[in-house]
């Protein structure tokens, strides 16, 4: 009797393992959900945007099952490292500083100029400048002469600070600011663009080399067949196909 139970259990276990193998690997995609057009929550509360469509395309190409997860920007790297999700796809620029902690795939979005949005043309690069915590823009402002950095947890709060007069300008990716400046007559671009970062890529754990290779291959393929270009043109007005 005991033997039957044991062999039944063994059978069930091997069957379970076989099942698990036949399913494609599940990859949890971590994003912020507050940075349109890259990623945001739509009216139904689902993750949407350029990175959602691109991410789904990458998963299809790499034959992975993807699950979308949102996480605060502040703790997005620690939660990747501790294994709450497997990739970061959140408009994250590839920088040396971050590369020490996590690995990046190749860029799926070219180095994008950052721009200052201000209430008037008279902004000259000095004064109080708002940026999101832990971004390349925040570290850039910190290194500017005559500028005082105020950091906010979300991109939206930086804009709110600008509108309320707490900050003289906001430094952020131009592609994020563009739709906002276009719709608000009070806001203008001022003080010129700055080039920061080495393009935007997906973040993975340093120990996850296999996943990184899969994603890299998928991104390369999508760049080749023009999918990345099409998506960039769809989501970013007036941007030319980079790849």
């Amino acid at each position: 009797m005991k033997k039957i139970v044991l062999s039944a259990a063994a059978l069930a276990m091997t069957a379970g393992m076989a099942m698990a193998e036949s399913h494609s690997m599940t990859v949890r995609m971590g994003t912020e959900g507050a940075y349109p057009p890259f990623n945001y929550l739509n009216d139904d509360g689902e993750v949407d945007g350029f990175e959602r469509e691109l991410g789904d395309a990458i998963c299809e190409t790499a034959e992975l099952t993807c699950e979308w997860v949102t996480n605060e920007w502040d703790s997005i790297i620690p939660n990747l490292v501790s294994g709450n999700y497997d990739t970061i796809i959140a408009g994250m620029s590839i920088t040396d500083e971050r590369d020490e902690v996590i690995d990046f795939t190749q860029a799926y979005f070219p180095p994008d100029p950052s721009a200052f949005a201000a209430m008037s043309d008279s902004f000259d690069g000095t004064g109080v400048i708002a940026a999101q915590t832990g971004t390349i823009q925040a570290s850039h402002v910190a290194s500017m002469d005559g500028a005082q950095l105020v950091e906010y947890a979300t991109p939206d709060e930086t804009i709110a600070a600008l509108r309320s007069g707490e900050a003289d300008a906001v430094l952020a990716d131009k592609s994020f600011l563009e739709p906002i400046v276009a719709e608000d007559a009070d806001l203008v671009f001022s003080g010129g663009d700055v080039m920061l970062g080495g393009g935007i890529g997906m973040g993975v754990r340093e120990s996850d080399t296999e996943l990184k290779e899969k994603l890299d291959a998928a991104i390369a393929k999508l760049k080749e067949d023009g999918t990345v270009n099409t998506l960039i043109e769809k989501w970013f007005d007036g941007m030319e196909a980079p790849y």
Binding site: A34, P37, Y40, D43, D48, G49, D156, A160, P179
Partner: peptide, 11 residues
């Protein structure tokens, strides 16, 4: 999330 300003393109 809901209280943050929303532009017409994304909502």
């Amino acid at each position: 999330e809901l209280g943050g300003s929303k532009t017409a393109r994304f909502s």
